[in-house]
Design a protein around this nucleic acid. Structure first.
Length: 598
RNA sequence: GCUCCUGUAGUUCAAUGGAUAGAAUAGAGGUUUCCUAAACCUUUGAUCAGGGUUCGAUUCCCUGCGGGAGUACCA
């Protein structure tokens, strides 16, 4: 049992014994003592004052006295106003290090084999545009949240749903036919996804011109948007696609294959992969069947023009379109289908969708419609709604070309990593391949940490004019700390120092910074657990930073290999190796690799 | 119009209703004959405004002001 659990029980018993207050150990609000006060764990006693009919100081003193009488590992306590600070005996911390330091998976729980899986959908790109910084956030979050939930002890299936069909794809296809002159990725030496993206922008440009001309001729803008020849033609193309027209399908397959080749390359660089990839072209028909079922059940209705709707006004929302008047399906139709498919296929415990907060409304509707269709598992659908990445002058928009391209950004980060490494000049002994790999993991470490350290639910800002940092609260800072520690441990091994240490030894005493490191290590499993519950890799990132900082501060003024007392030396090297493991495991949750040297 | 999100140092981010609001960066100053200075140490600097609930509010509620998103027969 961990110290926090024992302490909670002891407090619970004290409250019961002294004041007949019944509170389960699990709901004792224990917190870590703030740095400026002495102690390790703090109980705020204000909430009990009324029931105990004591003033806060007396109350705290009585509880403290009761606890130290009944719990050996609590050495002492002090009271500041209503704050009761407990001090844990060093023997406990030393014991903890002795037990856990060699555990290579410290902080990572194992999932029960038969646990129903948690399905995490992320990435879900459109095949009409290359990936940009917004998608990077999605991919990194999706990957990291998956790892996080795994680390907290669940089976996770990572899935990707490629939006490979729809009116938007037809726009790119149409623009390519019209303005492309047969251009291919090979002919222009352009990544396929970028090439197709170019024609999507091209469509928008010409379409806007057409609308403008119509408006000048006196057509209402709303009307012009519908009647512009390019839009009409795109609609017709979609209809032909859904009807299985050979010519359209062939072009569609050709252009999509270009895009996939490009995506694969970017996914590899980002280090993300999936257990299963769905294609909307293969699932959207299921959605149409569901809509028919809904019509039969009478929970959906058809308008005069043939379009199908769901009336959500009773739920405080509007009417929602589910099938166009020409019978083609929309986003919602498809998502209904894939939700059902996924539920049936995995028997999932939770269906998590990593999708931006601009789609909050969509998921509200999705859950409501699933419920109306009679699926009792609708409440297993969880929209992990993350914030937008904004640029200094606003949101990124693919159609308007105001985006930070994913490939360009990674390229730039790798160049910066190389420059900085060369300046430091510590990696000259590495082979060219090793150097290249190092620059890559440093670049991605900086990028991933930059994104993941921010609370996922919040919008974040990226300023392209300021490059992403490599110093301070950054990925490379933690990677560097890891490399330094590994260097120490290697030297210890080379010098024949055995790992492990003798617990029963009077020379073995914890310095203040050392204790800080141990306490931080101790907090890892609980941190992973609460981070997973909050779907927040940011909490893990912050933890990794705290640990690295605590270690650096300790390392700065404490001798390790130069410590004369052999047992103390062995303890400190053990502690170093322990910290390295914890950093490696936390960074792994973030999808960040840590180097052995840098 | 309606709905949702959001407002913390110059800037980018923290803070399960708890103690004196933390970091990083930028600014000022310091640390290397010694285990990796991408490090460490000192220091300047902030809760949009006004009410309310509470022993206690950055956090919860209301009003105002500012920013963003959604409300599409786009996805």
């Amino acid at each position: 049992m961990s110290i926090t659990e024992s302490l909670s029980i002891a407090i619970s018993q004290a409250l019961n014994h002294l004041y007949s207050i019944n509170l389960l150990p699990g709901s004792i609000p224990l917190q870590e003592t703030r740095r400026d006060f002495s102690g390790d764990y703090t109980l705020v006693v204000f909430p009990f004052v009324k029931q105990a009919r004591k003033n806060p100081e007396t109350l705290a003193n009585e509880i403290g006295t009761h606890v130290i009488q009944h719990l050996d590992v609590i050495k002492n306590f002090n009271v500041v106003k209503g704050f009761l600070n407990f001090q844990v005996a060093d023997t406990y911390w030393l014991q903890f290090v002795a037990e856990k330091a060699a555990d290579a998976r410290f902080g990572l729980a194992e999932a029960p084999v038969d646990a129903p899986p948690v399905v995490v959908e992320f990435s879900s790109p459109n095949t009409n545009k290359p990936l940009h910084l917004g998608h990077i956030r999605n991919n990194l979050l999706g990957w990291s949240v998956s790892r996080l939930i795994e680390a907290a002890g669940a089976n996770v299936k990572k899935v990707n749903l490629v939006n490979d069909r729809g009116i938007h794809i037809c726009k790119s296809m149409l623009a390519w036919l019209r303005f492309g002159n047969g251009e291919t990725p090979e002919s222009s030496h352009v990544k396929g996804d970028h090439l197709v993206g170019k024609y999507y922008v091209e469509f928008d440009k010409h379409y806007k011109q057409e609308v403008k001309q119509l408006v000048e001729r006196g057509v209402e803008e709303e009307q012009a948007k519908k009647e512009a020849p390019l839009m009409v033609e795109a609609q017709q193309m979609l209809k032909r696609w859904e009807d299985g027209d050979k010519e359209v399908r062939a072009l569609w397959e050709k252009m999509n294959s270009w895009v996939y080749a490009g995506f694969d390359q970017t996914y590899r660089r980002l280090g993300v992969a999936f257990d299963k990839v769905y294609y909307e072209s293969q699932t959207y028909l299921l959605g149409k069947e569901l809509v028919q079922k809904g019509l039969d059940m009478g929970v959906l209705f058809r308008k005069e023009d043939g379009s199908v709707w769901c009336d959500l006004t009773a739920d405080g929302l509007d009417q929602k379109l589910l099938l166009r008047r020409d019978g083609t399906s929309v986003y919602m139709t498809q998502d209904l289908g894939t939700a059902l498919l996924r539920h049936n296929e995995f028997g999932a415990d939770r269906l998590i969708y990593v999708v931006g907060n601009e789609q909050d409304y969509h998921f509200k509707v999705l859950k409501l419609v699933l419920g109306k269709l009679g699926f009792d598992w609708a409440d297993k659908v969880f929209h992990l709604s993350y914030g937008m990445v904004e640029l200094p002058n606003g949101k990124m928009k693919s159609r308007e070309g105001t985006v930070v391209d994913a490939d360009d950004l990674i390229d730039e980060m790798e160049r910066t990593a190389e420059e900085m490494s060369r300046e430091h000049g510590k990696n000259d002994a590495l082979s060219p391949e090793e150097q290249k790999h190092l620059y890559h993991i440093l670049a991605l470490g900086a990028l991933k940490y930059f994104i993941l350290k921010v609370d996922p639910t919040k919008n974040m800002l990226f300023n392209p004019a300021e490059s992403i940092d490599f110093n301070g609260n950054t990925g490379p800072f933690i990677q560097y700390t890891h490399a330094r520690i590994r260097s120490i441990v290697r030297k210890a091994e080379e010098g024949g120092l055995k790992t492990g240490f003798e617990l029963q030894d009077e020379g073995l005493q914890l310095g203040e910074k050392e204790r800080g490191v141990v306490k931080t290590l101790f907090a890892l499993p609980a941190t992973v657990k609460s981070a997973a519950a909050a779907y927040s890799p940011a909490m893990v990132a912050n933890y990794a930073y705290e640990l690295a900082k605590a270690f650096n501060s300790f390392y700065q003024d404490t001798p390790i290999l130069r410590e004369e007392n052999l047992n103390l030396r062995r303890f400190r090297v053990t502690l170093c190796a322990f910290v390295a493991t914890a950093l490696k495991n936390t960074m792994d949750i973030l999808g960040i690799e840590v180097p052995e040297r840098m």
